[in-house]
């Protein structure tokens, strides 16, 4: 099978998953379809570097998340996409908020999804990578170029934001 047709099969099998990842990483209002196309384009160009022993999903997901982070970094108005570790640490913990352990119905789940999409980039990216993609803190840290503690505090703040937002707008998603 030639490279093109082999790649065509992979494209058909993985398009939706890659799109889903890009959509979640880029959040609201970004061009997830373009990012997906670009991901496959990059994958196609470096297909010769792909080791067949490795899962394809892992390989292409890494390309997709790298590209999306690059996109967000480039479009970001601040010099640093992920801010300063110390500044995040200085934010007081909101221990009053209950930890989310269950959602009443599917509407609540949809609302939570929408809230994730609207999180600031610096919270959403590690959240999606850690809890959707299941990547370890160390891998996220090296991919984003920040420390492990920085990843930890961004994830903590992300969860706190979601807890607060879900309580503040219980019916807003409707």
């Amino acid at each position: 099978m030639s490279r093109k047709s082999a790649f065509g099969v992979l494209y058909t099998d993985y398009y939706r998953r890659v799109y889903g990842l890009c959509r979640r990483l880029l959040g609201a209002g970004q061009l997830a379809e373009d990012a997906t196309q670009e991901t496959f384009m990059r994958a196609y160009r470096s297909f010769h570097k792909f080791e067949p022993t490795q899962p394809f999903w892992q390989w292409i997901a890494a390309i997709a998340s790298n590209h999306c982070v690059d996109l967000l970094r480039g479009r970001h108005r601040d010099a640093q996409l992920f801010g300063q570790e110390q500044a995040e640490l200085d934010v007081a913990d909101d221990t009053q908020l209950p930890i989310l352990t269950h959602l009443e119905n599917t509407e609540a789940a949809d609302r939570l999804n929408a809230l994730v999409a609207e999180l600031p980039d610096r919270y959403r990216i590690p959240l999606v990578l850690a809890y959707y993609q299941g990547i370890s803190y160390d891998d996220i840290a090296s991919q984003l170029g920040i420390t492990r503690t920085h990843v930890g505090v961004l994830l903590l703040r992300a969860k706190e934001k979601l807890r607060g937002a879900l309580i503040a707008t219980p019916e807003a998603g409707k």
Partner: peptide, 11 residues
């Protein structure tokens, strides 16, 4: 819960 919710096809 977050993992489960994110996997839901909400988009």
């Amino acid at each position: 819960l977050l993992n489960e919710t994110l996997r839901r096809t909400a988009v």
